[in-house]
Computed example of a mutant assay.
Amino acid sequence: MPVISAPQEYNEDDLYVDLRSSLGLPLYLKCEGFNFSGSIKQKAALEMIEAAEKAGRLTDGSVIVESSSGNLGVALSTIAASKGYRFVCVTDSRCNAATRQLMEALGAEVHTVGAPDPEGGLLAARLAYVRALCDSDERYVWLNQYVNEDNWRAHHRLTAPHIAERFPALDVLFVGAGTTGTLMGCARWYREHRPSVRIVAVDSVGSVTFGGPASPRMIPGLGAGVRPPLFDESLVDDAVLVPEVDTLRACHRMVGQGFLFGGSTGTVIAGATRWLTVHAAGRDDITAVAISPDLGERYLDTVYRADWVRRVYGAALDMDEAALAGPV
């Protein structure tokens, strides 16, 4: 049993769910939500903070500031509280109420941007606010997950090697695309060490990362309104774009079997299901892993609440009340 003295010292790296009986497809789900921050973002948050400390950017009196729709904000709140830093999270109206409350409970200041930028949407508006904040006071230190190389280095150093150790005969790895830190870190590691593994990115419809048109997205986590600077498309073999209604279906299918996963995980499962249905249906000779970034407690007021789902998606979602409470 691990014994720790700080929350960031613990991350569960060895838990996988075999989804073969749930989906009828060969897929293992790597569950990254079992740490004190509740998501895979704890790895990147710690890597970026410790690198900033080593470089002398973060010192006594520094105030960490970051733009986040949720999971990274919670991770930074957790580590900032542990290390004694003030933290300001700049988010937008899509951030779940539970996530905002959790960050505030951890001592973070949460600023919610209301009006989207005419060209770059809510993300661009958040980034503009962060820049203005940093320009106003030199104590503010922006880690900038969107361009920070330590974002992907965390997964190059930790996530991908752990998967490779557990699944040495891996054929396909499914990774969600947000800032693309997890995607790029894993893709680089596999290109360097096991180039035969197929890297499949999973993104949300309405995200611009793979060149599609921007459109409103209501589930925070994956996707981007501004193409991530970290993203190198040459490292990705395939991409699957998932409509949010399919994210909801995947989440409710899993919760109907007792697995309460977050919206990002629902998107990854939906994308992996679609890809495997085309490329691996009926096959027993393929080994596939999907990375689950988060758990579902922070989505109880949105993804898992029938009135919110109907209000936001209406007739676009062909799910009755029974489906919203269990498998579809």
Rank of each mutant, 00 (worst) to 15 (best):
Q42T: 07
Y140C: 13
C251V: 01
A154S: 03
K41A: 04
G271M: 01
A55I: 03
A224S: 10
K30R: 12
D92H: 02
G314Q: 04
G258T: 00
A250K: 06
P293R: 10
Y140T: 11
R227P: 10
R100A: 08
E149K: 07
E244A: 03
A75M: 02
E32A: 12
E53Q: 08
H155P: 00
Y313T: 03
L46N: 13
R217L: 11
T247G: 06
A132D: 08
D14P: 01
V88F: 07
L25A: 08
E192S: 07
M48H: 00
V268R: 09
V303Y: 13
G176K: 01
V90P: 02
T265D: 11
H156M: 07
A288E: 09
S264D: 06
L15V: 06
G73F: 06
R57Y: 03
H279M: 15
D13E: 15
T267D: 15
R311Y: 12
R274Y: 15
R188F: 02
G212W: 12
Q42Y: 09
V289E: 12
G73V: 00
V268L: 10
I4Y: 10
L158V: 12
E119R: 11
K54V: 09
L241Y: 14
L127S: 13
A177K: 05
L235C: 02
Y299V: 02
E109M: 03
A325N: 08
E244L: 04
C134E: 09
D18P: 01
G266H: 01
N151T: 00
T179N: 04
Y146F: 07
A280N: 09
A214I: 11
T287M: 15
R188N: 06
Y129F: 15
D171G: 05
T182W: 12
L102Q: 09
R194V: 08
L295R: 11
T273N: 15
V63D: 15
S82Q: 10
S264A: 04
S292C: 09
S264Y: 04
Q145V: 00
S204W: 14
W189V: 01
A164L: 11
T182D: 09
V147G: 15
I163C: 08
R126V: 06
S136I: 05
N96K: 10
L58G: 05
V3I: 13
T78R: 13
G262A: 10
S5Y: 11
W142G: 01
T179S: 05
R310G: 01
L25E: 13
I4N: 12
Q42D: 14
D135V: 03
A290R: 02
